[in-house]
Design a protein around this nucleic acid. Structure first.
Length: 576
DNA sequence: GCCGTTTTCGGCCCGACTGTTTTCAGTCG
């Protein structure tokens, strides 16, 4: 059992305990442990075998959880978890994903009305039966109803980052199969969508049987749904479906093109083929002869498939619902890559809710070869994160000055802050303090339920503040968890443009905010975007790749992004 | 359930908002 699987078991246990009304700190202990385990660079099973190491030395792992890890590694099961799962149908956990519905209220609904699925819950809301329950009312009922669809899609879609880790394990596993010649993952995973439904694997193989046998041996498999001569479908323990298709070499490119999609992209491609007297499907590109017969024209590679249609081979990230002819005419842009990024300008330290010290973050950034980073801890309004007041902030900035001197140009540390935009408008810390910093980020964390006008006014106010450089996660959405707040982005774009300010593409795989469509809109309006990790520990730097993926889907190039430039250039852009 | 320790148990991130109820529990960030 690998670390991701162990972490998933602990997360599930935490969910179930929470639903049962267990001690909140106990629940948190499981979640903390899950997070620790997921971030480990070493496998738990290896640590167990290594005499010189102890699991209890890990952050948040005590005697009890160390034992549970051992049981999981040895048996693949956890008796306590099995017990709980027998008592509580897993479907009720979906209720916890509805914003505004926590463990206590969900338990009341389950116990009083015997409701265990989202469908039943929806019906109960429509029948106005929820408002009858003690502690509930019409408004709560409406809140639940509004959140059900979000919770329902969350059940079906996995974060790209999570899918990516799974894909890497699958690739590793299949690389040991005999007889696989070519292998690629198609579908929304390949297009880099924010969330992925299922995994489509495409292979050419000397022996399809050997390839399928190998897939059937995957350690995370829970059942084989179907298996034929060319296609096999399995379900994994995490409920995700994986399809394996074996195609002949002369159709590999066509199949890859076809199964990568998107559906809309393929519809357009088929139309273009038709105009050329061609037909395209998953087997290849065919010319329709006068007598109605079909001649194979291309299909071995994607490049030759697109070429046969007179088109450039679009990067998968650009195959959403776009005007392909216009894109081809303008020339496919040279999309940004992770190597173009020279600095990270949004991160936290243990002064607030980060895990690592200032020095640790800086060293990790040096190791990554960044030219500069901005330390941007929370301001005091974010009390749960131990946000900084003026005094503590100025102290931190002093420490940064000192560290910069000591490092002597190895890296530049910018004095930053993620300053809250207050509910009533205005910044959380006074201008006399903010003006002493290098890089002030402004964020909305509270009052997300305000009206469109209120929220837009708050953000516009921040953009008009001369100390503010950039707005972080401008719509506040959390994928699968929370809808974006109401904000008039067009007004925000206008205001950012007029004040020469930037907007953020937050690389956290749960945020990726701005989304691809809004990133493109910002690009078209000439507003530079900062792609930042929002790291809360040194591992957090790694999420930059997800932000880049999203940027590529928006068609962004190096020139569209702030932190591909040296700090001096950025200062100039800000008019400083 | 973890952690640190006055080595046996109390604190753990805590303040504000919302919708309920009529003084507060639940939820969120």
């Amino acid at each position: 059992m690998n670390n991701a699987q162990i972490a998933a078991k602990f997360e599930l246990l935490a969910d179930l305990l929470e639903f049962q009304g267990a001690n909140a700190f106990r629940v948190r202990a499981y979640r903390n442990a899950a997070r620790t385990i997921e971030g480990l660079s070493q496998q738990i099973s290896d640590i167990l075998e290594d005499e010189s190491q102890k699991l209890t030395d890990l952050d948040g792992i005590g005697k009890d959880l160390a034992e549970k890890c051992q049981v999981l590694v040895e048996t693949g099961e956890l008796p306590q978890l099995d017990e709980l799962q027998k008592k509580i149908p897993q479907s009720v956990l979906a209720m916890l994903r509805i914003p505004g519905l926590g463990p206590k209220k969900a338990a009341v609904i389950y116990n009083e009305l015997k409701i265990a699925t989202l469908d039943e819950l929806k019906q109960a809301c429509l029948d106005e039966r929820i408002r009858e329950l003690k502690g509930f009312g019409a408004k709560t009922e409406q809140t639940i109803l509004n959140g059900i669809d979000l919770a329902a899609t969350a059940e079906e879609r996995t974060y790209w980052a999570t899918a990516d880790k799974l894909v890497q394990r699958l690739r590793q596993h299949l690389s040991e199969a005999k007889g696989i010649e070519q292998l690629e993952i198609a579908g929304s995973y390949r297009r880099g969508k924010e969330t992925v439904g299922d995994i489509d694997i495409l292979v050419t193989a000397k022996s399809p049987k050997a390839a399928m046998d190998r897939l059937g041996e995957f350690s995370e498999l829970s059942e084989v749904i179907a298996r034929g001569d060319t296609k096999m479908s399995i379900r994994l323990e995490n409920n995700m479906q994986v399809d394996l298709r074996v195609v002949p070499a002369k159709s590999y490119g066509a199949a890859l093109q076809y199964f990568t999609g998107s559906k809309e992209h393929n519809v357009k491609i088929r139309g273009i083929a038709k105009q050329h007297g061609l037909k395209i499907n998953e087997y290849g590109v065919f010319r329709i002869e006068d007598d109605g017969s079909e001649t194979y024209v291309a299909g071995k590679t994607e490049e030759e498939v697109y070429k046969a249609l007179g088109l450039p081979c679009f990067p998968p990230e650009l195959r959403e619902n776009r005007d392909v002819l216009k894109l081809a005419e303008a020339g496919v842009p040279k999309l940004i890559t992770v190597d173009d990024i020279v600095g990270d300008m949004h991160m936290h330290t243990n002064a607030t809710d980060g895990k690592n010290t200032l020095e640790e973050m800086v060293n990790a950034a040096i190791e990554r070869g960044y030219q500069y980073i901005a330390i941007t801890d929370h301001s005091k309004r974010v009390s749960m994160a131990n946000g900084l007041d003026s005094e503590r902030l100025l102290e931190q900035w002093k420490a940064i000055d000192k560290l910069n001197k000591k490092l002597d140009g190895q890296i530049l540390i910018l004095k930053g802050l993620e300053c809250d935009i207050l509910e009533k408008g205005g910044m959380d810390l006074p201008d006399q303090v903010l003006e002493q910093g290098d890089w002030i980020i402004a964020s909305v964390h509270y009052g997300q339920n305000q009206s469109k006008q209120q929220i837009t006014d708050r953000i516009v106010g921040a953009l008009e503040n001369s100390n503010v450089c950039i707005i972080a996660h401008p719509t506040g959405r959390l994928i699968n968890k929370r809808e974006p707040y109401e904000v008039d982005l067009e007004t925000v774009f206008q205001c950012a443009k007029e004040n020469k300010k930037f907007l953020e593409l937050n690389a956290n795989p749960m945020r990726l905010d701005l989304n691809d469509v809004n990133c493109l809109a910002a690009k078209e309006r000439g507003i530079p975007l900062g792609i930042n990790s929002d790291a809360h520990n040194i591992e957090g730097f790694n999420v930059m790749q997800y932000g880049i993926k999203q940027a590529r889907r928006a068609g962004l190039t190096k020139a569209d992004v702030v932190n591909t430039r040296p700090w001096k250039k950025i200062q100039k852009m800000l008019g400083r």
